[in-house]
């Protein structure tokens, strides 16, 4: 076995998995709190990629020439605007349907997804957009014939994801805000009787999901440098798969699901076949669904006392 390939694919998988995890958080938290699959979440990610590219170009053209500063400012702006998208979509497309059938918000979400894709296509053009590479270079391990490397960009993705996930976990598990979210998730009526503005809590969860997607969008745009109006679809499906794999509704589940999906995809492409990596990823999903329908860390749907 070629260990350098193994290590390389582990690094790649970890990077990919971190991105899936960041996006999966949005699916899992929204599902957890109102029981709907936000099919437009992948397109929120797509929007954030455009925003990142636009604001990076703008900041450079304003004469800002420090790369770290541009990256940090772009990230902040992208997170803020994407958060507004998340908040608005919930208000306009989902909240009015809160008390209707379960299917209605789902269909509304598909509508929002189409609207966002077409909006990006019309306003930014259908072609592939690209941004220049800002961070180059890598750490290499091994000799010239057998080496593996971690690019600085990959390090940044892994580090930023780990910090974001850590911060989010702390927020949900250890703060009053997190308790309000978990209470709203478990029993919305009782939570509001205790004085929680559950509508606000629900909106805030959409905002958090959008912010995490924006972080992913920005990082991926910086790494791969190209995207189009359709990237949200496939990345969204993958992240959704990760959320289901880990147990939809479970925050650590989304992170674990993302990592498993990313690692299995890259190991499969490294050692077996690149063309069928998606088949492999979805096969894992099917297997988990057969043997543990609630996902790896998910709770069974009904938890009676």
């Amino acid at each position: 076995m070629d260990f350098h390939i193994l290590f390389q694919q582990l690094v790649n998988g970890l990077t990919l998995g971190s991105v899936y995890g960041l996006i999966a958080v949005g699916y899992t938290m929204v599902y957890g709190i109102i029981g709907m699959i936000n099919f437009a979440h992948g397109d929120i990610y797509m929007i954030s990629a455009y925003l990142a590219a636009i604001f990076m170009a703008l900041l450079f053209s304003f004469g800002l020439d420090s790369v770290p500063l541009v990256i940090v400012c772009t990230l902040m702006i992208t997170m803020a605007i994407t958060a507004v998208y998340g908040w608005s979509i919930e208000h306009v497309a989902y909240r009015p349907l809160r008390n209707s059938t379960r299917l209605a918000p789902l269909i509304s979400a598909i509508g929002v997804s189409l609207i966002l894709q077409n909006y990006a296509q019309i306003s930014q053009g259908a072609g592939t957009q690209s941004v220049p590479t800002l961070i180059e270079g890598a750490l290499r391990f091994g000799d010239d014939n057998a080496f593996f490397q971690i690019t600085y960009m990959q390090m940044m993705i892994i580090a930023v994801s780990a910090v974001s996930m850590g911060a989010l976990t702390f927020l949900i598990q250890r703060t009053a805000y997190g308790r309000k979210c978990r209470a709203t998730q478990q029993d919305r009526t009782m939570a509001s009787i205790l004085g929680i503005n559950t509508d606000f809590t629900i909106s805030s969860v959409f905002v958090i999901g959008a912010i995490m997607a924006a972080i992913a969008g920005m990082l991926v745009t910086l790494t791969y440098g190209s995207f189009d109006f359709y990237v949200g679809f496939i990345v969204g499906i993958k992240a959704f798969t990760a959320a289901v794999l880990g147990g939809i509704g479970s925050l650590p589940g989304a992170m674990l699901g993302g990592l498993i999906l990313g690692l299995s995809e890259s190991l499969f492409s490294g050692f077996i076949n690149t063309d069928y990596k998606d088949v492999f990823a979805f096969s894992i999903l099917v297997l988990v669904m057969i043997f543990k329908p609630s996902g790896l860390l998910g709770k069974p749907l009904v938890e009676k006392v």
Binding site: R182, D187, M190, S192, I193, G195
Partner: peptide
């Protein structure tokens, strides 16, 4: 939620405690 903040508290039928939260967290809620 506005009623809940006026100084009225309810011990509801069926208790409705938040079962996956700890006792301390339930009380803090």
């Amino acid at each position: 939620h506005q009623v809940g903040n006026l100084g009225i508290a309810l011990v509801p039928e069926g208790r409705r405690v938040f079962s996956s939260m700890t006792i301390e967290e339930n009380l803090m809620m």
